[in-house]
Design a binder for these strands. Structure first.
Length: 168
DNA sequence: ACTCTGATTGTTTCC
DNA sequence: GGAAACAATCAGAGT
């Protein structure tokens, strides 16, 4: 199985050609924006742990590689279309399978369903992801801008330190 | 008490 | 162009 990034582009371009879909997507967005926060902390911790910890003896899983400096202010990658679908799917799945609490099973089931889903069903999530990505890109641009400013400020600070070092 | 793990696909980024 | 990291979720296991 080879990856098909172009496939995604097809979805995206198609989505832009369907403004009606976007309207539907907005409807989906509202209920989605109910509330989802805090939980990100776990993710951050997990990620940091992947770096600090050597990792479990799992041969199937790739080893975590040292990450670059991670700024807490840095915007995180937005969820993909699949992840948005996963949100809804998880709720329904847990309703139908209240006994299954592990996300592993949900992820498996979600992946299988995602594969058999039709284009019309997927495009909604792709549209959401596209907008989120645009927002993320915008946030990233601003973040870089701010970072530059901070760097400049810190630069003067470095100069001060250098000066002190020079004097000392 | 706090932190990490797992399983999924899509997108992005780096080389 | 390809490979790998990273995005959310959350109960359970581990430290």
């Amino acid at each position: 199985m080879t990856k098909k990034p172009s496939k995604t582009k097809d979805f995206l371009s198609a989505s832009t050609e369907n403004p009606l879909k976007i309207a539907e997507k907005e409807k989906l967005l509202k209920p989605k924006s109910t509330e989802k926060k805090m939980t990100m902390r776990t993710r951050q911790s997990t990620r940091s742990a992947e770096i600090t910890k050597p990792m479990s003896p799992k041969e199937l899983k790739p080893k975590p590689k040292p990450k670059k400096k991670e700024d807490s202010k840095m915007p995180k990658k937005p969820p993909t279309a699949f992840f948005y679908f996963l949100e809804d799917f998880r709720k329904e799945y847990q309703k139908q399978n209240p006994d299954v609490k592990s996300m592993r099973d949900v992820g498996k089931a979600c992946g299988e369903k995602w594969k058999i889903m039709s284009y019309e069903e997927k495009v909604q999530y792709y549209d959401i992801a596209t907008e989120k990505r645009a927002a993320f890109d915008d946030a990233m641009t601003e973040y870089k801008k701010r970072k530059q400013e901070n760097d400049e400020d810190q630069g003067s600070g470095d100069n001060y330190e250098k000066l002190m070092y020079f004097k000392g």
